[in-house]
Deep mutational scan, measured.
Amino acid sequence: SDFTIRIGDRTLHLKNVSEEILKILEELLRRGIDFEELRKIVEELIK
């Protein structure tokens, strides 16, 4: 499924993301992860 994360004025667009990855990202966001850290993790996950 497609997913968009907005943190402040920044946006991260994800396409064809599995439910498992979404759950991980949601947990990281709940813990207050930094946007740049989140972006790096996402890039690793979707390689």
Rank of each mutant, 00 (worst) to 15 (best):
S1L: 15
S1P: 10
S1R: 11
S1H: 14
S1K: 13
D2F: 00
D2Y: 00
F3D: 01
F3P: 02
T4A: 04
T4V: 14
T4Y: 02
I5K: 01
I5N: 00
I5V: 09
R6C: 12
R6P: 02
I7Q: 02
I7F: 07
G8W: 00
D9G: 05
R10W: 10
R10N: 15
R10E: 15
R10K: 14
R10A: 14
R10L: 13
T11P: 01
T11G: 03
L12Y: 06
L12T: 01
L12R: 00
L12K: 00
H13D: 04
L14W: 02
L14S: 01
L14D: 00
L14M: 04
K15G: 06
K15C: 04
K15W: 04
K15P: 03
N16Y: 06
N16P: 01
V17M: 07
V17R: 00
V17W: 02
S18Q: 06
S18C: 03
S18M: 02
S18R: 04
S18Y: 01
S18A: 04
E19Y: 09
E19F: 10
E19R: 06
E19T: 15
E20D: 14
E20F: 08
E20S: 11
E20M: 05
E20Y: 08
I21S: 11
I21K: 07
L22A: 08
L22N: 03
L22F: 10
L22S: 10
K23D: 14
K23A: 15
K23E: 08
K23H: 12
K23M: 15
K23I: 14
K23N: 12
I24Y: 13
I24M: 13
L25C: 03
L25F: 04
L25H: 00
L25Y: 01
L25K: 00
L25I: 14
L25T: 07
E26Y: 10
E26V: 05
E26W: 05
E26D: 11
E26C: 05
E27G: 07
E27H: 08
E27N: 11
E27S: 09
L28D: 03
L29Q: 06
L29A: 05
L29E: 03
R30K: 11
G32I: 07
G32Q: 12
I33G: 07
I33F: 06
D34H: 06
D34R: 07
D34S: 12
F35H: 05
F35D: 04
F35T: 06
F35W: 09
E36M: 05
E36T: 09
E36P: 04
E36Y: 06
E37D: 08
E37C: 05
E37W: 04
E37F: 05
L38H: 02
L38A: 02
L38K: 02
R39L: 13
R39D: 06
R39T: 13
K40L: 14
K40N: 13
K40S: 11
I41V: 14
I41Q: 12
V42T: 07
V42S: 13
V42I: 11
V42H: 03
E43T: 09
E43Y: 08
E43N: 11
E43G: 10
E44Y: 05
L45M: 12
L45V: 09
L45D: 04
L45C: 03
I46H: 10
I46E: 10
I46A: 13
I46Q: 11
K47C: 05
K47T: 15
K47E: 07
